[in-house]
């Protein structure tokens, strides 16, 4: 079942087209990534879905509801972590959670969230005294305190150290495991690759691709080596191999999927000796560059 449906969203500010026909849908229980450079309409799209902005045209349904017309119902069902928001400096961690829990009809027990997100010992700390990572975890906990069906997380791990990022990823997987659908806006390739079931790639106000990270990377990988001894026959027929080219003793084998294992096994079986063996795997970043025509970051 589609939890979010977005159809042909358009938005213009004066001369600038921010959204130029954005469409996608998010399935229940998945982590859906929204990937793209800054200024490509990611945040405008997500904020329209959250009901914070009105697009010029297009249709949005969140759990079957219109985020503007059915705003109160939708806000009861979603949890949001916004980029660049703060809390009052003097607000204590427990007060923030207790306060936000009181906004919802059926909130979660915020004490549980305090434990889950590793904030139990910061319970009485003031927001202004928290580290970047602690603030971020508090924001995520606040996004979940209303017991939402869909959680929107915008630039989840910005400002976190590598260890804290990994820990956050594990927690997000747990959020999905608990049945909450997650919409993740990110510009980190590794994060999207690690977490997302499907990704929408944004460029110039359009969705240029929607697929799983593996599907986006898809395409061909290349294996290169130098022939030392033996005769190379029958590589073309191996499973996954899509092409073999040879220039002197330099060989390039292209293929999909797990073709590299088949190739090395084949070479060993025919006692072909090679050196300088290298496997060039396409990354999500390569896929992104190919899709958008620009490098990331």
């Amino acid at each position: 079942m589609a939890v979010i449906e977005v159809t042909d969203l358009r938005k213009r500010y004066a001369d600038l087209t921010v959204l130029d026909g954005v469409s996608f849908s998010v399935e229940e229980g998945e982590i859906f990534g929204i990937l793209g450079p800054n200024g490509t309409g990611k945040t405008t799209t997500v904020e329209s879905v959250e009901g914070l902005r009105r697009p010029d045209s297009g249709l949005i349904r969140v759990l079957g509801l219109d985020p503007v017309q059915d705003g109160p119902k939708v806000r009861e069902l979603i949890g949001v972590q916004l980029q660049q928001t703060q809390l009052p400096e003097n607000l204590k961690v427990w007060e923030a959670l207790d306060l936000y829990a009181s906004f919802y009809a059926k909130p979660r027990d915020w004490r549980e969230l305090l434990e889950e997100w590793g904030l139990a010992d910061k319970r009485n700390a003031r927001f202004g005294k928290l580290s970047g990572g602690q603030k971020q975890r508090l924001f995520i906990a606040l996004a979940l305190v209303g017991n939402p069906r869909v959680a929107f997380l915008d630039e989840l791990t910005t400002g976190l150290d590598p260890q804290a990022r990994r820990a956050t990823w594990e927690l997000i997987k747990q959020v999905r495991a608990s049945g909450v659908t997650v919409v993740l806006v990110s510009h980190f390739m590794d994060e999207v690759e690690e977490l997302c079931d499907r990704v929408a790639v944004f460029n110039h106000g359009k969705v240029v691709a929607i697929d799983s990270p593996a599907g986006l990377v898809g395409g061909e990988h290349q294996m290169r080596f130098t022939l030392m001894a033996g005769d190379m026959v029958g590589l073309e027929g191996l499973p996954g191999v899509t092409g073999v080219s040879r220039e002197g003793d330099r060989v390039v084998v292209s293929g999909r999927g797990d073709f590299a294992t088949a190739v090395t096994a084949h070479l060993a079986r025919h006692q072909v000796l090679v050196s300088d063996l290298r496997l060039d795997r396409r990354t999500l970043e390569d896929a992104f560059t190919a899709l958008t025509g620009r490098s990331f970051g």
Partner: peptide, 17 residues
């Protein structure tokens, strides 16, 4: 003005309150 600057009003807009 501080509440607006810190995005507190905006964050509140995403809740039922």
């Amino acid at each position: 003005a501080t509440y607006r600057e810190r995005g507190i009003l905006r964050r509140l807009s995403t809740t039922p309150v």
